[in-house]
């Protein structure tokens, strides 16, 4: 299996409270040094709650944010400069809000034209043919091309967003909550389309979502993020059915599920740690029922557990 994407010690630190000329007063680690590999044709699901750093990670991967440390390798070649135009041909991004990711004052044709023209310098005649080809593969009609974004429903607009990402001919797509703005019945249409496209074009996906069931349904492997770090990574069928990290277990128990009685899975403090004053040791220790003294002084690292899983926990479950 060849590696499509390899990231090594990628991290992002944001300065906080910068004065006019002086140095920043403090800094927030949005993503702690993080290493991941994604195989060609694989879908890696990334789950986590708001503020866990999943969007920061995604934006670094497409060059919209410059990483503080670390390197990104796509199909063996490193990308060092944070220039979306360089990244764009190899890795593309599908946004969460389909309508606001389309310029309201451009027609769909102009929007679709941009990546072909600026990334691939394709002559005008070929561009039209290529756009029609892509539109066909995402089940959109050619007559939509001369319309404006506000004329579309969320599901259709998200297809246009996917079509734009395909036009760049990148082989890796970052899908940042691609269906969370859509209705349930339309969400399934888009997820199935994504699965078809992956098979048809041999794409590799990074699927970011807060919806555990959706992530589980589309992913081969799942990484769980908490407070800017991966706390567990493993095969999709194992992560939520046999969680190793207590946080993963908490997530799995919290997901609303038909036929399970309602019970607050957590009685203790529920707030995330203050990012300006990160606690020593494991960031989850304060919410964890299994925490020991060691958890509060030493930071656990990702360690292999079982055949294919890894978890960052001193007292893992289900092993």
């Amino acid at each position: 299996m060849t590696t499509a994407l390899r990231i090594t010690d990628l991290s992002k630190t944001f300065p906080v409270g910068r004065s006019l000329f002086g140095r920043p007063k403090a800094s927030v680690k949005a993503v702690h040094p993080l290493s991941l590999t994604v195989a060609q044709g694989e879908t890696l699901g990334i789950v986590g709650e708001s503020g866990c750093g999943k969007s920061t990670l995604a934006r670094m991967l497409v060059g919209l944010l410059e990483p503080t440390t670390g390197r990104i390798e796509i199909e063996g070649a490193a990308l060092d400069t944070a220039d979306p135009a360089v990244f764009g041909r190899r890795i593309q991004y599908v946004f969460q809000d389909p309508i606001s990711s389309l310029n309201p004052r451009k027609t769909i044709r102009q929007i679709m034209d941009a990546p072909l023209r600026h990334l691939h310098h394709m002559p005008a005649r070929d561009r039209e043919a290529r756009i029609l080809e892509i539109f066909d593969s995402v089940n959109l009609r050619a007559e939509f091309l001369s319309r404006y974004p506000h004329e579309f429903s969320g599901g259709q607009a998200q297809r246009i967003g996917i079509a734009r990402a395909l036009a760049a001919e990148a082989r890796i797509l970052i899908l940042d909550e691609p269906v969370s703005a859509l209705d349930v019945s339309v969400q399934a249409q888009v997820l199935n389309l994504l699965a078809d496209l992956r098979a048809q074009f041999g794409l590799t996906y990074l699927f970011i979502s807060h919806d555990l069931a959706v992530v589980e349904a589309v992913s081969d492997r799942i990484a769980v993020l908490y407070f800017g770090a991966v706390v567990e990574i493993g095969p999709a069928e194992e992560v939520f059915s046999a969680p190793k990290h207590p946080y993963t277990e908490l997530l799995a128990q919290s997901a609303p599920q038909v036929g399970r009685p309602l019970a607050a899975p957590e009685a203790k403090g529920t707030e995330l740690p203050d990012p300006l004053k990160p606690p020593p040791g494991c960031a989850f220790a304060n919410r964890c029922t299994r925490a020991s003294a060691r958890c509060r002084t030493e930071t656990p690292r990702l360690t292999p557990l079982g055949t294919a899983s890894q978890a960052a926990c001193f007292h893992p479950l289900n092993v």
Partner: peptide, 24 residues
């Protein structure tokens, strides 16, 4: 019935989801 089928449930593993074609 079909709306319920659209909603993926945790624990089902990787699969194809039921979709309702068209729009309301």
């Amino acid at each position: 019935a079909r709306l319920m089928a659209c909603v993926p449930e945790l624990g089902g593993g990787k699969r194809r989801l039921e979709a309702i074609p068209g729009l309301p």
